[in-house]
Design a binder for these strands. Sequence first.
DNA 1: AATAATAATGAAAACCATTATCAATAACAG
DNA 2: CTGTTATTGATAATGGTTTTCATTATTATT
Lengths: 155, 155
Amino acid sequence: MPWLNGTGPPWLHGKFKGCGYRLTLPRQAILDVLNKTTGHLSAEDIYLKVHKIYPAIGLTTVYRTLELLVQMGMVFKFDFGDGRARYELSEGPKSIGHHHHLVCTGCGRIIDYTDFIDEEIELLKKTERGLSKKYNFKITNHLIQFYGICEKCQK
Amino acid sequence: MPWLNGTGPPWLHGKFKGCGYRLTLPRQAILDVLNKTTGHLSAEDIYLKVHKIYPAIGLTTVYRTLELLVQMGMVFKFDFGDGRARYELSEGPKSIGHHHHLVCTGCGRIIDYTDFIDEEIELLKKTERGLSKKYNFKITNHLIQFYGICEKCQK
DNA sequence: AATAATAATGAAAACCATTATCAATAACAG
DNA sequence: CTGTTATTGATAATGGTTTTCATTATTATT
């Protein structure tokens, strides 16, 4: 993906423009970090990574951009209960794709899992349909987390 | 439930004692509020309600007690993304029982639903068994939330 | 191009829910 | 009762996130 030193891919420009926003360098840089990194990054994590390449970009902008991206549906914001929000690209090249989480209440470790059972997806769809209809609620996303004690913490 | 002006129900005493804790008046008062109120209360909500009856009880104690109750598994702590944690009795008289949430990203409204629980529970158990085995992870709880736009916000 | 209008940025200050501190008090065991 | 330990509450501190506001970059218009 060799579009960081240009104006970025045209579709991205369009996506921003369509929402009345501008695709600026800081925003590209932040998206780039999200693309390159897999994991659950905090705002500061992202800031530090961006900062290495563009020291001029400040933490405030990172927060603002992330909020924007979340609002645009490009980024998903998680809360694992450790006092800081985590951000993840909701789709895209390096995104593992949709996944759910195992959260260790002992050490805070997060395990992603994507090996859904077919039934799981089936039921989710079914549930979404049912809920949408009953509550007239337009579902755009879901969050599924299992809490417990991880292997290491059991010892 | 006429036990607030006494020492509380004996089983509660036992439950606390068993964990090495004491069932004090502030703790009873906080539990009482959680019992009487249905909904997703923030620490301050609880503090204000408790404060009406026992003005001496401070916000700090509310936070501390909630943390204790969460740790004891009597209370579940939620995060709906509005910057403050929400607490709910995980079982008990006024608790609706286990339920999942619809979170409106427009206005922040929370809808509880219990409709599809039966089928979900079935699959959840299955999924939990699978995950527990694969990751050697002892699952104690889960969180399921659907995000979207509620009826009012669609207009 | 030049310029006006508007959106985006960054540094610093403000915010605000939550936690830590610490001396005073309450609960329990013997 | 008395000593020991847990609990409490007021206050201060913490720390992630937002606001503020003057400056700068981007887009639309002439």
